[in-house]
């Protein structure tokens, strides 16, 4: 059973299920939108003039709504206990992990693109104009967050603590990704180039590599009882 075939099969299944239910993208987008609106109406924007806040709000919304997406991804596995049949196949579990991580990335990137539009509207910062330069940061930040999130969300399948455990473990681990992504996004929305954001981007790339490698390595053992 080839690794790439397992990745493609898992990704295709995840996207098919999401296309039918639209549950993860819709609920995550609505939740993220609520976070943005709360920030837009409670932050005193005129006194913050000249100090970009949209990058922080963007990644705050991604962090919170992302947990919802991660949680729902595994709820599907638990519905009819399908993951047990999955564990009994000879498919490499690292391939299942990568397929799931890529699916979560696609869900979150869709939400982030919607958020960029809303941030431009409510925060009057040039988020859409910066989008071509912002896109690599969004991708890198999302990959890191999804990589660590997909790994630890899998623990939901083996514990009754569920979301509590996920929150306690996920946020401290994902903080280097979220902080670096927010810092790099802030520089870019502020008119800077990717070179200007090199420092946080380097940290982001290192965290991504570490989390993806750890996920590929640990996902299988984590699912075993």
């Amino acid at each position: 059973m080839s690794f790439l075939f397992t990745v493609a099969t898992t990704l295709s299944k995840e996207l098919k299920v999401e296309w039918r239910s639209k549950e993860i993208v819709l609920s995550s987008a609505l939740f993220a939108l609520l976070v943005v609106l709360l920030c837009a109406f409670t932050l005193d924007l005129p006194t913050l003039a000249g100090r970009p806040v949209s990058a922080g709000v963007l990644w705050l919304a991604v962090a919170l709504s992302g947990m919802l997406a991660l949680s729902r991804t595994y709820e599907r596995e638990k519905g009819f206990d399908a993951f047990r049949a999955l564990l009994m196949t000879p498919a490499p579990k690292s391939g299942v992990y990568l397929g799931k991580t890529l699916a979560v990335c696609l869900y979150l990137l869709t939400v982030e693109l919607v958020l960029c539009l809303v941030l431009e509207l409510f925060f009057h910062e040039p988020v859409l104009r910066a989008l071509p330069r912002l896109l690599p940061v969004l991708v890198l930040g999302t990959v890191g967050y999804a990589a660590v999130g997909t790994l630890f969300s899998a623990m939901q399948l083996r514990t009754t603590l569920k979301d509590l455990l996920l929150g306690v473990i996920l946020y401290p681990l994902a903080s280097p990704v979220l902080i670096s992504a927010a810092k790099a996004s802030q520089i870019i929305i502020d008119g800077g180039s990717l070179v200007d954001a090199a420092d946080p981007l380097k940290l982001l790339i290192v965290a991504d590599v570490l989390f993806v490698v750890a996920g590929l390595w640990l996902f299988g053992p984590l699912l075993e009882e």
Binding site: V17, D81, R84, M88
Partner: peptide, 15 residues
């Protein structure tokens, strides 16, 4: 992969 399991739950994806 040589074992077939019919459990209490159907072990399939509802969607």
């Amino acid at each position: 992969c040589r074992i077939g399991l019919l459990a209490h739950a159907p072990l399939v994806y509802p969607e």
